[in-house]
Design a protein around this nucleic acid. Sequence first.
DNA 1: ACGCGCCCTGGGATCGATTCCAGATCGAGC
DNA 2: GCTCGATCTGGAATCGATCCCAGGGCGCGT
Lengths: 350, 350
Amino acid sequence: MEAAVPGARGAVTAAGRRATIKDVAEAADVSRSTASRALTGRGYVAPAVRERVRRAAQTLGYVPDAMARNLRQQVSRSIGVLVSDLRNSFYADLASGVSSQSRRRGYAMMLADDAGSVEAELEAAETFVALRVAGVILTPLSAEVTEYLGRHRIPVIEVDRQFAEGVCDAVVVDNKAAAERVTASLLQQGHRRVALLIDEMDWTTGRDRLVGYRSAFLAAGLPLDDALVVRGGWDVGAATAVARELLGGPERPTAVFAANNVLAEGVWRAAQALGLRVPEDVSLVSFDDAPWMTMVSPGVTAVAQDAVALGEAAVAQMFDRIQSPESPKRTVMLSAAVAERGSTAPPAGA
Amino acid sequence: MEAAVPGARGAVTAAGRRATIKDVAEAADVSRSTASRALTGRGYVAPAVRERVRRAAQTLGYVPDAMARNLRQQVSRSIGVLVSDLRNSFYADLASGVSSQSRRRGYAMMLADDAGSVEAELEAAETFVALRVAGVILTPLSAEVTEYLGRHRIPVIEVDRQFAEGVCDAVVVDNKAAAERVTASLLQQGHRRVALLIDEMDWTTGRDRLVGYRSAFLAAGLPLDDALVVRGGWDVGAATAVARELLGGPERPTAVFAANNVLAEGVWRAAQALGLRVPEDVSLVSFDDAPWMTMVSPGVTAVAQDAVALGEAAVAQMFDRIQSPESPKRTVMLSAAVAERGSTAPPAGA
DNA sequence: ACGCGCCCTGGGATCGATTCCAGATCGAGC
DNA sequence: GCTCGATCTGGAATCGATCCCAGGGCGCGT
């Protein structure tokens, strides 16, 4: 174990403690107040003294205690991020976008994932409150969490999905337009039995995707068949099982629109397992891009939400909100591109 | 905007401030000390008083300020995690494993990603020091960062890779054994021109994978050809370009061992672009599994490092270290399974 | 010479929670 | 009745940094 040599580029005082501003002040032979002013740059300090303090801090390897600073200033320079599942690339990309932007602004990121559990979500929210984060960016699971954080006067930005519009700042993609676009494109190719595989209809994500799907039928003057709207479950296993049922049945749809990447994976696996070729036997479109969709052949046509951009936009909106706490709530809607890749074709009979 | 009704399940006092322990104490008609003891459970408090304080806290929506608590107690209940790139599923899984385990122990996770930049890495480390995290789990980019954190007496666990063994706690996979195993399996299938596509040889990851690759040749009594060891670059674009060069050349290898998932993606894309079939024209094995490898056909045979388990093990080791700061440094080595999927076959001539 | 304003510094309060310590109360044992 | 110990409570110090404020020194204008 190396000895802590004071004076060397060490990080601790001789006693083995971490250096505090008091140590710096003593080393520079000034008061704590002056040392603080010299280092933060707020208030008068003679240039020579400032330099002396700076050097002392450097020598001691002084790093100000963020706890103490935040406690005194009653603000923190970290933001909370709460997503559903880091192992899903959508959320990981989202977190990545948030991370880069918040670092750029000098903020640290506290990241938590509820594993789809409302309880874990609330627990994480409480941790954020305890840590007095400057704001929280989350993909909400329950309506409670937003309300809870709001009660504690913590700015909240909902990303990807909302329960209701206008009650909370949010950054979402234009689910309806994108869903309508890809559905219309399938209908135009001649498909009539287009199934929608979806997981939930409680959030704006699910609702709007369903609405978009339906309005494409209406716009084309085609009848809706509710039997073609199928609930897919929350994980790949469940999605695969449901998709097998759907594709293995007697009245097999000629195209499937999967409402997210997990469901799309289920459809893909089910098609493989059943020996169905894509797109010859069944066309597939996914809402939500994923790395594997560009690796398989044919590639899977997908609504490519830019999750990184979503995260970045959320950070931007968070800082807007911090700057003007009283301005009306705003929902930012990003449009999503459709990445055409070849997993769709006119139905066999056409 | 809803009014903050004190007495309701509100989160703020009438003045709009956040409730502090002083508010709780006054509401329960006790001193701050007693309130603190009642809520933390340390020290004597009459049962009736404890209950009164608890209810007051509940009513006020009191959440203790972690800053103040940590400052007083000189410990924090959060750990820092520093990975290279959240958008890479390996790191995302790692973070996910850390997240679940640290939450289980009541710790919050501060997550940062250096985007492959040593500067960003050190900056993040400084943030962790400032926040007085209980420990840091990282995939090191530079040797400096570990040393820096060590100087500040912060426990560090290196994950996935190390510069040198024994100087720092670490959790790694048995790179050499796994690399040797898959290489040997290719050799046994009859391959002789087995290329190794690798990005770096400065860390134990790269070094050991190279060593494993080589020792498989030696064990089989086959000659090594250094021209078959190719540097692949850091992103998919670069990897693809290098792989195209490799597979498009005159002396095309019959099998490629890609040293990580990014490189494997490059090889896969290059093979597609060149119209080469896997495994008929070229066999492919990857070190490091990725979701797409199970989606393509044939699936890509890969050394399946369990990144989630890696993260979980790192957390476990971190708490061991916190409990016994003086015990000797330890490197935990996890073995990696090989997921056989069909991307290998005997070479065409065989 | 005096007053005014500017530059600069240090003392001390402050943020919110924990914790040490002194003191109060009460019941039991002798 | 007195002591002793256990139980319980509140006052005050403490963690590390910031920042208000008082005050000293100095230059300058009159």
